[in-house]
Design a protein around this nucleic acid. Structure first.
Lengths: 246, 246
DNA sequence: AGACGCTTAGTGGTCAGACCACTAGATCGA
DNA sequence: TCGATCTAGTGGTCTGACCACTAAGCGTCT
């Protein structure tokens, strides 16, 4: 029994080594001491400071990386090291996609939440969409309008269209959540696309819906845009979810 | 230049070692091969299988842990090892809280999204809330009704009340997101609570709002509940955001 | 025969120390 | 002056070891 510092000392240590690192960084972010663009101390130094191994520090860094909160880069100079960032979109997408795949979030639930968010996005986009935003949507619509387009290609453009609306909403959280939500449904939707019989009919319906949404947004008709988006998602989901028509 | 296997071989390796582990687990979750309750191989075995070090495996596991997708436990037997789980609430909360603290998601944006989600939650709760759910809300309301309650205690009960509504909605995603959203605003709101002058007046207004929401939910008035929740959040936010009255 | 206690194997948690790949900037040379 | 080279500091990775914990097997004692 030579150990006397491995014993849990609530006042200072507290649980796992890598959690000490988590808390150290957490505290500094929540208190505003660490801001976007700031550097974390080098791993070796942080390990020494907190009295843990470098491996523990790295595990904690991976945690923050998974949350889109830091970015690591090798090399020397200002660009190198571990930097505080704020790119949650990817992290949110990953998280939702995994949990959707685990059937923890049933698709009908996701659809319902998605409707809420996309209603908001469409409403905001009607007011804030810039000319560039509108151009981007137009291009996606034209792309989806190509005759004989493959289902996967259409699905990607469809996803991009909904994401474009969210991105132009001027509300980053709504945009990121909407994008993550639609992205997390990409595979399940594509699966259903592949199984569908009346593909040509379905795709025409989708195109029509999209055009109407586009028109409402460019006209600044927020209420219409919200309603059309909801109808669109519900209709599409019913078509895809229940099964192929006829 | 003796290295010849460290060179990037896109077909098999591909980037960082721990990313290989990420992809391995990702693939198996997205394909449905790994389901909730299943075990990952032991770290040592997985490391050997993928040709990486155990440290790389651990970093990847931390990533999934941060997303609420796996749970690790030491020991022997069926309960030990790394298990696939699905507890995204904590992960979502952490993620949002950090990004809100980094001011990546401005509070007004969060409020707007929160309104959308809580409208949905309130609407669903009006239809699905069980007797137990209602009891829980009632207790929280009674707790908040205590005269002379501390601001922090009130804030916690307030958070819990909104979370309780979300939890009774029967839509896990909406519930988790709503909870994460409100939780991520806990500190900022508490800060504003502390700065407020007309505290007694404010708290009475909040109590009144809550009672009205509670009544609408228990009466099954979905539209009313949604409207009341929106009004409540907007009013509270205006009171807290703009500054103390008079 | 049963209940209790000990041993054991296998798991994640942690650590120390080493080397590699990469990069910006300093240094040195033509 | 400008280019090539060197250097220091960073994250990325690996190895091999030990610790703490837990369930289950095994034994002994009652």
């Amino acid at each position: 029994m030579t150990k006397d510092q491995t014993v849990v000392r609530p006042g200072e240590a507290g649980g796992q080594a890598f959690e000490r690192v988590l808390r150290w960084v957490d505290d500094r972010i929540l208190s505003g001491e660490l801001r976007v663009g700031d550097h974390l101390p080098p791993e070796r130094e942080l390990a020494k400071t907190l009295g843990v191994s470098r491996a523990a520090v790295r595990e904690a860094v991976r945690t923050f990386q998974a949350q889109g909160v830091v970015r690591s880069a090798v090399g020397a100079g200002a660009a190198a090291g571990t930097t505080v960032t704020a790119v949650p979109a990817h992290a949110l997408t990953r998280l939702l996609r995994l949990h959707v795949a685990l059937a923890n979030f049933p698709l009908p639930d996701v659809v319902e939440v998605r409707i809420s968010l996309e209603r908001l996005s469409a409403r905001l986009a009607s007011r804030h969409a810039s000319d560039d935003d509108v151009d981007g949507m137009r291009q996606l619509l034209d792309h989806m309008a190509q005759p004989g387009i493959e289902r996967e290609e259409f699905n990607d453009a469809d996803t991009a269209f909904h994401v474009a609306i969210a991105a132009s909403a001027g509300n980053l959280l709504a945009a990121d959540l909407t994008a993550a939500m639609r992205e997390s449904m990409r595979l399940p939707i594509l699966d259903r696309f592949r199984r569908i019989d009346g593909w040509e009919h379905v795709i025409d319906e989708l195109r029509h819906d999209h055009e109407a949404i586009y028109a409402a947004i460019t006209d600044g008709q927020a209420d219409d845009a919200a309603r059309l988006v909801e109808d669109h998602i519900r209709r599409a989901w019913q078509t895809l979810g229940v099964g192929a028509p006829s």
